[in-house]
């Protein structure tokens, strides 16, 4: 992979700390310039997440938690600092590497109904297979159906998103996020628009499946009650993680 370091200033071979964590952040910061004003969304964050660990980051809207999550997931480039996943500085590699990483090692669950409206539930779950590396790609419809059954939607495999409730759509999104058995599940306010009962069901489902797959789970939320079940709870305020 060719280096594509941009403005992070990271050296491609800069090593993480001696014992490699699944996720390690070193001095990660993100700032935006709006006119003459510089907005610091995330300030010098250091963080380690081990395999299978459940970490919750709580904070108000605009505290920078979603931005932090997106930098870990390779969705937005940090202004400063390095993000290591499995010991690799992801922002020192090119965009194809990060695409492959998101496809193979990271699953995302967003705060909105993140399904493609023209695809059925099973086709939505199969998207990581479609977008993944061609080599060795094979039809894995049975895996997708098994996952949908696992999230309680075995009867809805051919349903389109418009035919599913909000909770059911979120379950499909979870099944899709776990399709490639990722090492890390990133959830950004995953139950933000769900009622309390559905919220609890979805949360329970994510925790169970992450435990089964030994997947690390990083969730950002403004809901303290939801964060209580995590192994570690961190607070984010004005871009500072504590």
């Amino acid at each position: 992979m060719s280096a594509d370091r941009g403005e992070t200033g990271a050296a491609p071979n800069e090593a993480p700390t001696s014992v490699t964590a699944l996720v390690e952040l070193k001095g990660v910061a993100k700032s935006y310039r709006i006119g003459d004003q510089e907005i610091h969304a995330v300030r010098d964050v250091d963080l380690r997440i081990e395999s299978g660990q459940f970490v919750a980051i709580i904070g108000h809207s605009g505290s920078g938690k979603s931005t932090l999550l997106s930098m870990i997931g390779g969705l937005t480039r940090p202004t400063r600092g390095n993000v290591f996943i499995d010991g690799e500085n992801i922002w020192a590699h090119d965009d194809d590497y990060r695409s492959m990483l998101r496809n193979q090692k990271i699953g995302f669950v967003f705060q909105f109904a993140s399904l493609i409206p023209t695809l059925t539930a099973v086709d939505n779950v199969l998207l990581p297979n479609l977008l993944g590396p061609r080599n060795g790609r094979r039809p894995r419809e049975e895996d997708a159906i098994a996952l949908l059954e696992r999230v309680g939607l075995g009867e809805k495999i051919d349903a389109f998103p418009s035919e599913l409730s909000g909770g059911q759509q979120r379950r499909v999104a979870i099944a899709r996020a776990l399709f490639n058995r990722p090492r890390l599940l990133l959830a950004d306010e995953p139950t933000g628009d769900l009622d309390e009962e559905t919220e609890a069901e979805v949360m329970e489902l994510m925790l169970e499946t992450c435990r089964e797959l030994d997947t690390a789970f990083l969730m950002v939320t403004h809901n303290r009650a939801m964060a209580e079940t995590a192994d570690r709870v961190l607070m984010m305020k004005a871009g500072i993680l504590s």
Binding site: D95, D96, R102, F108
Partner: peptide
Amino acid sequence: KRELGLLRAIGARRRT
């Protein structure tokens, strides 16, 4: 836009 961003999050490359 959001849908395209979502595809990128799932692993779509730029050229895809």
